[in-house]
Amino acid sequence: MTDTATRPEHGPSAGDPLEVAFAVNGTAVRAAVDVRESLLDVLRERLALTGAKKGCDHGQCGTCTVLVDGRRVLACLTLAVQARGRAVTTVEGLAAPDGTPHPLQQAFIDHDALQCGYCTPGQIMSALACVAEGHAGDDEEIREYLSGNLCRCGAYPGIVAAVRDYADSARSTEG
């Protein structure tokens, strides 16, 4: 390969595949990724995990929200290589193996906290983190800490009710 000589020292260049290993929803995965590829594109296009959605690809809408080591991140602004060695959780990883929804998912159903459903995976991942961060004390706090997740259908009142419901029951089980 003649062009290796011209390649900068500090790493692989655009377009070259790089093998990365990480965990998704508790399963170890390996993928040969383009170093420029976002975690979102790798989840969706290479790993067939299309729960995380692309609403802007620019960190402006929240539809791509996933958890990396328990913290919410925007998968469109996260390079896939940054996930190396980490544990990624997507909306597909929340329900029990028998299909029983996670209590937060159930709360979304109960409060009809969705319409088209396109923002819903991002809302749920964000809300899980919001509660875990201790930012679901009251409705106003929930609204504030979920304002990075746009819902054009305007399901916000239901989303707030669902998150409050889940946060309250999570607190009472802890307490």
Binding site: V91, P101, L114
Partner: peptide, 27 residues
């Protein structure tokens, strides 16, 4: 009646157009 497709929407199972990834797909 609760929204009949809410379960598939909250679990990420709903397939929207761009969620299709047929083999050999180009972008």
């Amino acid at each position: 009646v609760p929204r009949i497709d809410a379960y598939e929407k909250v679990t990420g199972a709903t397939r929207y157009a761009a969620d299709r990834t047929p083999p050999g797909l180009a972008h």
